[in-house]
Design a protein around this nucleic acid. Structure first.
Lengths: 342, 342
DNA sequence: TTTAGCAATCAACAAGTTAGAGTGCTAACA
DNA sequence: TGTTAGCACTCTAACTTGTTGATTGCTAAA
């Protein structure tokens, strides 16, 4: 049974009002603010129906109505108006991201910070890395007597934190040659293949065998890079929402944010442009308190380079969140293309 | 007027009990648990004296006593027993830190995590970097057509996140030569001097001028490296302390932790082996809620390489915190010396 | 289908009461 | 002089009760 237009409008009004005031919405209020043309009794009837259908709920008998997860879902899917960002918001997004152009991790982190500041919610951002990324080049730099820094450039990012212990007395020339050799062998090869020893053992000359082993060790952790790059911005903002005035709930959420490995699967949207999970949707994570997660996947040249989004109470301004994520997505894409044109 | 031994013991008992139970301590309780040999009336008298001296306070007339900041201070300075870590705690510290040996940032971050887990408090850790660090070597690696990675090794750390935009068509040889040249000019020179253009402009050959400028830009941010490396572990643990059951206070603390630039001066202990700031001590930071900060400076070969410590309510188990910080400090120092012996 | 009117429900607040925990004081004692 | 028992006093925390106001659901009429 499809909802009548009036019922839709009432649902929309309830969500709008509740998002703004965080108070159960009464039929009176709906009538005054949104529906002067019908009586509160009529609205009451409609609200009762909406409650039967599962879109609204009552905290207690003599209270107004509150949207359920399904209510928000319906709102997001069908009823939500699109919202424009203010020109000052557009400006700050452009400026901030432009300043960081070129540094992938910085861009995503800045994006998260922007999102948090504009939406007043806790934001997250992370870059993607996958075992199917391809090697572009490998450089090895001697930084101390027995230490070498591996710089691995892939088609998506630059791995530059990997330090390996080396034998005494290995020369710079040798490392440089080894880098060239490894680049020639592995250039264009997926990381998943590089670490598959059987496939390449034959191709690696004996003199570079130790280096190859060090490389494998480094690349095995490539997938965890995205975990380390998971940026969380504005965590304390959680506490300003009445939903988390209860310390227990607040703690549960903060602990979730703290445990990045747990958080990650919740955030990772399945390559959807914008993914919206509300309430039940993400109750997959055991014990996760009622909340909503909105994430966007960012692309440059058609390649997904990272995700960013917000996590917070179900009661959030979805429309605004989506505008921000969308605009930031476009800005990042353009950033990449501009860089190429130069 | 020095305290009588009994008064000292009573103060110690009050602190011990309050740290454990977070309940105002009554004369009865002291008598039962710590002083069966004197009557509660006597203890009451002593507690009244301790209150006059400013070591104890009463939340209200008919409540027990609570230590003041001065009370904790006295406890820490004179009365605190030393505590041994359990063998399982020693073991986990050794194992965890050994696994990270060689990676300075990782060691300090792991140290913070260990501290947080063992003390059940929020822990922080950061590596030191200062403009008086000396350059050891500079390598420049081409990672894309117009991008180069500067790897700057100093006597304290390795700077390897600095990517600079380069002119089209700069060759790897040129960058490699430039690196050698810069190393020859700046090896052993303090960073503060390197970025002082007037001092060295004459020495830098014209062909490397642009590279030098890029280097300066990078090194100017060297000091902020430590900010970025400021690791905070176990922030949600704050909320499990009754002191922060009030969401407002919790938020103030979390915001402090979030604003790293604000937090940093509070944490940076003035090269003291272990620094303990309690209550008023660190009320320098405006609006900082009542709390205590205990930090230790870690050294390898006599050089301070980082700090780690805890931040939390004044009511904490100082003795345990200090044991942990101390033992971790020793472990880190040994780690560095072992590495050299090999 | 909509509306007005009205009884019923319930949270939130305020006021009043009680119980008990803990103190400070005092007078007696060692 | 220091210590103790005893007791009155204070104050919070918890519970009870009553009241108010918001909001609903229902019903009968338009």
């Amino acid at each position: 049974m499809p909802l009548s237009t009036r019922k839709e409008k009432i649902l929309k009004a309830v969500v709008t009002d509740y998002v703004e005031n965080c108070q159960p919405v009464s039929s009176q209020e709906i009538q005054n603010k949104y529906f002067p043309e019908v009586s509160s009794a009529t609205i009451r009837g409609d609200m009762a129906t909406l409650e039967e259908l599962g879109y609204l709920a009552q905290p207690h008998t003599s209270a107004g109505r509150v949207p359920t997860a399904e209510g928000y879902r319906m709102y997001v899917d069908k009823l939500m108006p699109s919202k424009k960002l203010s020109s000052s918001e557009l400006k700050i997004i452009n400026q901030t991201l432009k300043a960081k152009a070129g540094h992938l991790e910085d861009v995503v982190r800045s994006a998260a910070r922007l999102i948090s500041e504009i939406t007043n919610l806790t934001a997250v951002g992370f870059t993607n890395a996958s075992m199917s990324d391809k090697i572009k080049s490998i450089k090895i730099v001697k930084i101390a007597d027995e230490m070498a820094l591996f710089v691995v450039v892939t088609d998506r990012t630059v791995l530059k934190d990997a330090i390996a212990q080396m034998n005494m007395g290995i020369s710079e020339e040798y490392l440089s040659k080894a880098g060239e050799f490894l680049t020639s062998v592995f250039g264009g090869v997926q990381i998943a293949d590089v670490i598959d020893v059987d496939k390449f053992a034959a191709k690696v000359r004996e003199e570079y065998e130790k280096i190859y082993k060090a490389l494998i060790k480094i690349l095995k952790e490539y997938g965890t890079v995205e975990l380390e790059n998971l940026a969380i911005e504005g965590a304390p903002k959680l506490l300003q929402h009445p939903e988390y005035s209860n310390v227990k709930k607040a703690k549960a959420m903060l602990e979730l944010l703290d445990a990045k490995s747990q958080l990650y699967p919740i955030l990772k949207s399945n390559n959807m442009n914008i993914s919206i999970k509300i309430g039940h949707d993400n109750e997959i994570a055991e014990g996760l308190p009622e909340c909503a997660v909105v994430t966007a996947t960012y692309e440059v040249d058609g390649v997904a380079i990272g995700n960013a989004g917000v996590i917070g109470p179900m009661r959030m301004d979805y429309s605004k969140v989506i505008s921000v994520l969308d605009y930031i997505g476009k800005t990042i894409t353009n950033l990449g293309e501009d860089a190429q044109d130069e």
